[in-house]
């Protein structure tokens, strides 16, 4: 067993441990921090799997921006999670297990990790790999696929994210100004 797989197994074990910790603790500030580490660990796993661009996004968005957004939300709400009042946790457990089992079952149909014969690698991938540096002139293949071959897709995605960002800003900003008025009334 080489160190790569040791790192792989340990990183996944850490992720499981942190997920359990997230479920167990009730302090939302702590949970936000744990989420950030969870994302960072997934970035590490992606790194081991050679998916540099996905890892990059995960580290920047998952570990960075969403932590900040969660903290911003926390300043507007309570710091403690309410004690759960669900009567029957067994139902939830069963639902989770069935969903998980279905997902695991679904993976049995997928091609093996990194299989060169997989259908995705047969269709347009060879052209991207061979032609994109010449056709587009950008050294990073992922960038040329996202920004050029699938430019309209990316434009749509960016619009969605931009809208979501504006909505979040509007929500956070609105609450803040209202709170300030409250403060003035109390003072």
């Amino acid at each position: 067993m080489n160190l790569d797989s040791v790192i792989d197994i340990l990183l996944l074990a850490f992720m499981a441990v942190i997920a359990i910790a997230i479920v167990r603790i009730r302090d939302l500030f702590g949970i936000a921090m744990l989420f950030s580490i969870f994302s960072l660990l997934s970035a590490g796993v992606f790194t081991v799997m050679d998916a540099a661009d996905v890892a990059f996004t995960e580290a920047a968005v998952g570990a960075g921006i969403s932590t900040i957004l969660m903290l911003a939300t926390l300043t507007r709400t309570a710091r403690k999670e309410k004690p759960s009042n669900s009567k029957n946790p067994a139902v939830a457990l069963i639902v989770v297990f069935v969903t998980g089992a279905l997902l695991v079952f679904g993976t049995s149909d997928l091609p093996r990790f990194g299989d060169p014969q997989a259908p995705v690698h047969q269709h347009v991938a060879p052209r991207y790999i061979e032609e994109s540096p010449k056709e587009i002139g950008i050294p990073n293949m992922v960038t040329s696929v996202l920004a050029s071959y699938r430019g309209y897709d990316t434009l749509g995605e960016t619009t969605v994210i931009f809208t979501a960002g504006i909505a979040v800003m509007a929500l956070l900003g609105m609450r803040r100004s209202r709170r300030r008025e409250d403060d003035e009334e109390i003072d």
Binding site: A43, T47, A60, A63, L71
Partner: peptide, 22 residues
């Protein structure tokens, strides 16, 4: 792949400022 570590180091800075502000 070092870029990932670099990106996180940069983002981490913003994150800590956010925690302090919180």
């Amino acid at each position: 792949l070092l870029d990932i570590a670099l990106a996180y180091a940069l983002i981490n800075f913003i994150g800590i400022v956010a925690v302090l502000k919180f």
